[in-house]
Simulated scan of single mutants.
Amino acid sequence: MEKDELKILAQNLANPEGEKGKEVAEMMNAANIGMTLESIKALLIEDDEHLLEIGHGNAGHLKLIFDKAKNIRYTGIDISETMHNEAKNLNKEYKNQAEFVLYEGEKLPFEDKIFDKIFTVNTVYFWKKPVEYLNEIYRVLKNNGTFVLTFGQREFMEKLPFTEYDFTLYSNSEMEEIISKTPFVRMKMSEREEDVKSKTGEQIRRIYTILTIKK
C-alpha cells in the first residue's frame, strides 16, 4: 500500500466513515472476530446482565453475545456515525435488547454504576487520555463489575505499516502502569496468538493481550 492509502486505512480504523468506512468495518469484524470472541468469553456473561461495548464497529458479533445467557441487555457506543447506523441496520432483530449510542469519544454519556460488564477490543490505541478514560469506565461500572480490555501488543503492532499514523501502542507493562493509576483493584492478564489476514492483506501471526479488570 502507498503512504496515502495507509493513512486512509488508519483513519478508518480509528473512525470509519462513508462507504470506505463500511468496507473497513466488514474487514475489521472478520479480522478481529477471534479477539472479540475471546473477550466475550472472558466476561463470563450471566443471565440478566447489562453489557457495554466500547467501539462496537458494525456489531456483526451481537448474536454471539445474546447466545451466552438469557435476558441480556446490550449497549454499544461508538464515535463513528457510519458504524452507529450500520450496527443498527445489521441488528434490527435485536432492537428490544440492544441500543447503540453515538458519542464524542471522551465522556461516557451514562449515569454511575449501571453496567455489569464492559468490554472493548482494539480501541485503546485511540484514547487521547487513557487514565481519564479508564476512570470514566470505572464510574459507569457497577461495584464488583468486570471490564475486559483487549489490545494488540506493541511489539506486534509496530510491525503493521498503518500504526505509525495516530496510533498509540502499548506493551503489557505499559498498560499495567496506566491501569495502576486508576481505582481498579485487580487484574488478570492473558496472552493469545492467532494467524489472521492483516488489514493490508498479508497473513500474519497476531499477538494480543486480554486484561480482565475488576472494580
Rank of each mutant, 00 (worst) to 15 (best):
R205G: 09
Y165K: 12
E104V: 04
I45P: 00
F151N: 08
K129E: 14
I72V: 15
D48C: 01
I178M: 10
F115E: 10
T75K: 08
A31P: 01
A42G: 00
P16A: 12
L6T: 08
E191Q: 12
K107Y: 11
I33R: 14
E86F: 13
N143S: 13
G152E: 13
K92Q: 15
E104A: 08
K128M: 05
L102I: 11
V24W: 05
Q153Y: 03
T212V: 14
Q97R: 12
R206L: 13
Y103K: 05
H61V: 07
Q97F: 08
A69P: 00
I54G: 09
M1E: 02
E111S: 14
V185H: 09
K117F: 06
K88R: 15
A10P: 05
E158D: 08
E193H: 01
V24P: 05
E26K: 15
T209C: 12
N96D: 13
T123V: 15
A10D: 02
E177Y: 09
K95F: 05
A98G: 10
E164K: 15
F115N: 10
F162K: 00
L102Q: 04
E5M: 06
L52R: 04
I8D: 08
K20P: 00
G76Q: 09
Y125P: 13
N143L: 10
D78G: 11
P183N: 03
V101D: 02
E46C: 05
H50V: 11
D116A: 05
P16Q: 11
E81L: 13
N135T: 06
G145R: 05
L134S: 02
E5L: 07
K95V: 04
T182M: 01
N122C: 12
K68S: 06
T163G: 12
N89R: 12
N85P: 01
F100E: 02
Q153G: 10
N122M: 13
K70C: 03
I54K: 07
D166Y: 13
R192T: 04
F151V: 05
D4N: 15
I118N: 11
K20G: 00
K68N: 00
I137Q: 06
K95H: 07
E164Y: 05
V124K: 01
L141Y: 10
D48A: 00
G34S: 10
E132G: 14
K128Q: 10
G55F: 04
K88S: 14
T168H: 13
G105W: 08
S198I: 07
Y170Q: 02
I118H: 11
K159Y: 03
K188H: 07
Y165P: 09
Y74C: 06
E174W: 05
S171P: 02
N15T: 13
L43W: 03
G34D: 12
E191L: 11
I118L: 09
E2C: 01
N71Q: 04
E191K: 15
Y138H: 15
F100I: 03
L169G: 08
D116N: 14
T200A: 02
A30P: 00
I179M: 10
I72F: 09
K63P: 00
E104I: 02
A14F: 03
K68Q: 14
K3W: 02
L108T: 06
D78R: 11
A10R: 01
G60T: 06
K107F: 09
Q153E: 14
L13Q: 14
L134Y: 07
S173G: 00
L211Y: 15
G105A: 11
I40M: 03
E2Q: 12
D47K: 04
T168N: 14
T182I: 01
